[in-house]
């Protein structure tokens, strides 16, 4: 009986100590709400390149041994959710050119960078995440019409018993929501977009956009 008791205490201490380890393996699945946007009467293709489909955040520095954050599915889900609210028709395409005469343009998102921070790293009481995407818009013949970057930022306050996995997941979710918001609201202000829109739609009907 005494031996069992000591075994349980020892096991408890081992579990406690292993929980304080430096590794991190996070799978983030984010769903953003359907945006309340003015849908433009355009047919747009979206091309998810290999970088966008396969990018996984990895860090193996001294303080972050073996960190992996995988939010690939969230990324694609984000654009699949927001683009149909922005454009009348959205089709997934396999490259940046299209022979379909009805296609007005092709969007290509790309992950440029991603960073996360723990409260103890920044000496604050926040979990933080930054995600930088590059967005390119092509005409159907593959010529670039516009190219811009979107930076999404998310933070969440530390709270008792909130571990680093939950804190970082919340911060990344907020950053992805921020990216979605900026994609919807800042799209008309991206370089060259207003001129492109004026050739494609009746701007008098979309005065808040062009």
């Amino acid at each position: 009986m005494v031996m069992n008791y000591k075994y349980i205490i020892s096991l408890f201490l081992i579990v406690l100590m292993s929980g304080c380890g430096k590794s991190l393996n996070l799978q983030v699945d984010t769903a953003v709400p359907t945006p309340l946007a003015s849908q433009l009467p355009l047919v747009v293709g979206v091309y998810y390149n290999d970088n966008f489909k396969n990018f996984i955040f990895k860090d193996s520095s001294d303080s972050r041994e073996d960190w992996t954050i995988d939010n690939r599915s969230s990324r694609i889900l984000l654009f699949n959710d927001i683009l149909p609210s922005m454009f009348k028709t959205v089709n997934s395409v396999n490259n940046v050119t299209s022979t379909d005469s009805l296609v007005d343009g092709i969007l290509e998102p790309e992950v440029i960078e991603m960073q996360v921070a723990l409260p103890e790293e920044t000496h604050s009481d926040m979990f933080e995440a930054w995600i930088k995407y590059g967005i390119k818009l092509y005409n159907p013949s593959g010529k670039i019409i516009s190219e811009w970057q979107i930076i999404g930022y998310g933070k969440t306050h530390t709270a008792m018993f909130k571990n680093k996995e939950k804190g970082l997941t919340t911060a990344i979710n907020m950053a992805l929501r921020d990216i979605g918001a900026k994609m919807v609201l800042d799209f008309p202000r991206a370089p060259g977009i207003k001129t492109w829109l004026s050739t494609k739609i009746d701007c008098s009907q979309f005065s808040n956009i062009c």
Binding site: V32, T34, L36, Y153, M174, D178, G180, A181, L185
Partner: peptide
């Protein structure tokens, strides 16, 4: 969404 997100 997205008009009342923190940044917007």
């Amino acid at each position: 969404y997205p008009y009342f997100e923190t940044s917007k």
